[in-house]
Write a protein that binds this DNA or RNA. Structure first.
Lengths: 231, 231
DNA sequence: ATAATACAAATTGTATACAATTACAATACA
DNA sequence: TGTATTGTAATTGTATACAATTTGTATTAT
């Protein structure tokens, strides 16, 4: 079996970045990684350039390569542009999707559902990522896809955080998201742009609320610390 | 004076691509260009990777790098997504622009107007390109800017074609576009998102009509070829 | 004459040595 | 004690030699 070491390295890095195995903002060591993936520095640097172009990494002249950070500004920009891009891409996907792509989407969705059933949160996030990238491919618009893909990078990295602790209440939300995926597939098959845009907005709002809930959880009872003293 | 050869090479290539000096779809010769810009192939290839990431070039494994093509599909996708992205970016620009950026924008606009007065069509296209990129920078949304910048690449390349032959009727359209730029600057200074979105749509429609007119010119008189024979 | 094959040339990809730059630590100085 | 300064180590950038792949051409067989 012939494998392309360079491509394997690239995919491995993408996976490690999306799963937060390599944290946002952390520096990548050329020498270390080139040894780890059995490449010399030249092709590894080309991988870096490619991943930087896709928005995974940031190259800083003479001072190394960092994983794209996720600070407050990024989050604000993310929430500002995600719904518009997601909706636009979904509409185009419904208009332009071809058979093979729909098959791929169904397959990834089945993997996503299974990961949900088995509470494999990391797999869930990755299959979800792939699901939405396929929708991007269906849209087939090279002017929009770079924006979509950048949004998905950060969306997936965020979801790694909030998928983790699943209580029974939150578990219901997972099934809801999963069912939305199914409905989206159906709308794409029927080439129904109106429906998929609505579904996409709902899907976005579900995810957004989940993120918001994670960032701003229910506050602790203000009396908590006072009970003993006050009682 | 210290110059960064690599960066100079990159900027030169961008300029040559945007001005159609290197045509869409044409292949780039690594050896030739590395000699031309006094670099070895390694850093030149890194420039290629960067420009490919920005949408100027396409890298094909083991079969060279080509300038991004502009075929019928690209055009369709372009017209489909440009208004949405332009409008969204303009709105964010009005909301987020800072003083220095507004100064830069005014300066580029003065260069654009002068180029128009002197009918330097190539300069016009390039200053116009810079004008709209600055608006992209003002928006400061890293999720949208890659889409905007890709649109601008192809928009500028198209405008190289249709700016060229300026008759007195078309000249008026140039002044109209120029005045729209001024109005846009004003709206940005006033932080007036509503106005700039409207202006941007109008500006887009003007440009779109111009492209359409170029692609589908007034047809020749159908009797032209028959006059002699029929008379 | 056409198609298939083999060989040569050109092009692209990778490894490695070397140069340039930055980061860090030790020392000198205020 | 705190701040410059210098030298050294580590990291990043570039050139070049070499390997792999593709492209073009000539030769052979059908």
């Amino acid at each position: 079996m012939i494998v392309n070491k360079k491509q394997a390295c690239q995919e491995a890095l993408v996976h490690r970045i999306l799963t937060l195995d390599i944290q946002p903002g952390s520096t990548l060591d050329e020498t270390l990684l080139s040894e780890e993936y059995g490449l010399s520095r030249t092709p590894l640097r080309e991988v870096f350039q490619k991943l930087a172009g896709d928005g995974y990494l940031m190259l800083n002249e003479n001072r190394g390569t960092k994983v794209s950070s996720m600070d407050l500004t990024s989050m604000r920009n993310f929430f500002q542009s995600a719904p518009m891009i997601y909706a636009a891409v979904a509409r185009l996907a419904a208009e332009n999707a071809v058979g093979q792509q729909i098959e791929d989407l169904k397959h990834v969705q089945s993997l996503f559902r299974r990961a949900g059933e088995e509470s494999e949160t990391q797999d869930m996030a990755m299959h979800n990522h792939r699901f939405h990238r396929i929708i991007g491919e269906m849209a087939g618009n090279p002017y929009l896809s770079p924006s979509l893909n950048r949004l998905l990078i950060d969306h997936t990295r965020m979801s790694q955080m909030f998928y983790k602790p699943i209580n029974s209440k939150e578990r219901l939300l997972v099934w809801e998201a999963c069912d939305q995926h199914d409905a989206m597939i159906e709308a794409i098959e029927k080439k129904d742009p109106g429906t998929i845009v609505n579904l996409t907005i709902k899907h976005w709002e579900l995810s957004r609320d989940k993120i918001e809930k994670f960032v701003r959880p229910d506050p602790l009872d203000v009396d908590m610390g006072l009970q003993q003293a006050g009682e």
